[in-house]
Design a protein around this nucleic acid. Sequence first.
RNA 1: GUCCCCAUCGUCUAGCCUGGCCCAGGACAUCGGCCUUUCACGCCGAAAACAGGGGUUCAAAUCCCCUUGGGGACGCCA
Length: 474
Amino acid sequence: MTQSTKNVRTRFAPSPTGSLHVGGARTAIFNWLFARHFNGEFILRIEDTDQERSTDESITEILDAMQWLGLDWDGKPFRQSERLNIYQEHANKLLESGHAYKCYVTPEELEEKRKEAQSKGEVLRYKREWAKLNESPNNPYAIRLQTPDEGTIEVQDLLRGTITFDASEVDDFIILKRDGFPTYNFAVVVDDATMDITHIIRGDDHLINTPRQVLIYNALSYDIPQIAHVSMILGADNKRLSKRHGATSVVAFKDQGYLPEAIINFLSRLGWSYGNQEIFTKEELIEKFTLDNVGKSAAVFNEEKLEWLNSWYIKNEPPEKIGELVLPLLKEKGLNIDIDEKLIKIIKELSQRAKNLLDIADTIDYFYADGIEFEEKAKSKFLTPAIKPVLSDITERLSDLSEFNTDEMHKVFDQVMEERELKLGKIAQPIRVSLTGGTVSPGIFEVMDILGKDEVLKRLNKALDVIPNEDVSN
RNA sequence: GUCCCCAUCGUCUAGCCUGGCCCAGGACAUCGGCCUUUCACGCCGAAAACAGGGGUUCAAAUCCCCUUGGGGACGCCA
C-alpha cells in the first residue's frame, strides 16, 4: 500500500440516533486499530446534524459502549452541532467563490416532484432552475453545490483502487440546509479536513457519497484524506444487518453475558484476517492490523462463532476476572457474595461449561443454597432404596475423614466401589443429585471440595432422609 | 430502473496483487469416534467450496471479458 502512515489520525463518526450497533463497532475497531498500530490518534466525532433524530441518550450509550469495548479515543469528542459556524463559514466561502448557490425551492415542493417522478417510474433529477422558485430576500433557502455537468469524478480507495463516476450522476446537492445545519456530506468534508484526518475507514455504503465529497474537497481546495471503504456486515439472510436479526447492539451482547474481548476479537475478524489465526489479544490486533489484510466482500454476522469465541474467553481469562464480572449478576439474583477462594473454585469449574456469563450465574445456585430442592425426576431415578445403603456407607466414611480433600474422597470412593463391586458410574449420579439437586454439575469430587465437609454431610444426610427404606419383607 | 461495489466449504476466512508448491489450508457449525462420573471441556476423524461461460498461457482459484448472483446508493438522513 503506497500510503503515508506518518502522523496517522483516524476518526469514528457515529450519528447519535440509537445505540452502538455491531456494524458501527466494527468500523470503530478498524479505525482504532489502525490509529493505534501506527501510533497515531483516534478521535470521536458525534454527527448530530439531524435535529429530529439525534438524542443525548444515544450519545451516552455510544460512549459507554465504546468504553466498555475498551476503544479509547484521544481528546474530547467533537459534536457537529457545536461547529455550525464553521460549516456556515465554509458554505459562505463557496457561495462567494461561485461554487455554490442559494436554492429557494421548498422540501415540500421537492417531495411532490419526487413523487411525481416515482409514479412515472423515474428518479427525481434536480434541475438548477428550481433554485429560483420562491426567490425573495425574506424566504428561507438552502445552499447547493454547483456540480459539473459532464466529465468524470475519480475516487481513490485504499482497498479498491480508482473508482470512476460519471459527473452526470451527481446533481447539485444541498450542503447547508435551510435550518443552517450542514448536510452529512458537507459536514464530513469540512470536519475531516479541519480535523486533519489522514485516513478514513468507513462502511462501503458511503462509497456512493464519496464523489460528492471529492467535489467539496476540490471546491474548498482541501487535500483529500486516504479513504478505505470496508464492506458491510450482513445478517444470516444476507440482508443488511438490522433489528430484525435480533441483537445487534453492543449493549445487547453485553447484557447477554458476552465479554468485550470476544466481541472485539470477533468483529476484528469480520473482513480482516491474519493467516489462520483466530484468537487475538488486543495487543496482537494492534500489532498485526493493517489495511493490507482487509477483504473486500461483505461478511455475514455469524453469532455461533461469536458464541464460541465468548466461551473461549470465559475459559481462558483469569477466573478472578470472570468472578468480578459475574458478581453483579449474582447480586441481581440476591446472592450477595464477594470474591473469595470458594467463588474462584466455582468459576474454574463452571467456566468450562459456560458460553456466557449468564450461564455461570444461572448454574451456581446449589453451591450457595441453604438446603437444596431435589428435582423430581432426578430424585425418583437416582435416590432409590437400592442405593441407600451405599450412600449411607459413603456418608459415614466421609464423616470420618480428618482431611477433607479430593485425594481422601477418592480413597473413600475407591474402597466402597471395591467392597461393593460397584462402578463409579453407579454411585456418582445419586451423590450428584444428593449434593446439587439435579443431574448436571461439575465433577462430584470438585463439588464436594467446594461445598466443604459440613455442607456435604448435611446434604447427604438430607438425601438419606428422603429415600424410603428398602422393602425387606420379602 | 440508473449508478457503484463484491463473488473460495452452510458461515468467517487463507491462497489471488507477484499464475505452477492447491484434485484448495484453517476456524465456527454439523456428523462420527475417543476420554468419562452427569453435563460440558479436551482430543482424533469425516463430510463440505474456487458461481457459470468464454478467452490469455505450456499451465488459472489466481490475469482479462461477458453472464449470473448478492449487496449498497439514488433525501434539506447519516
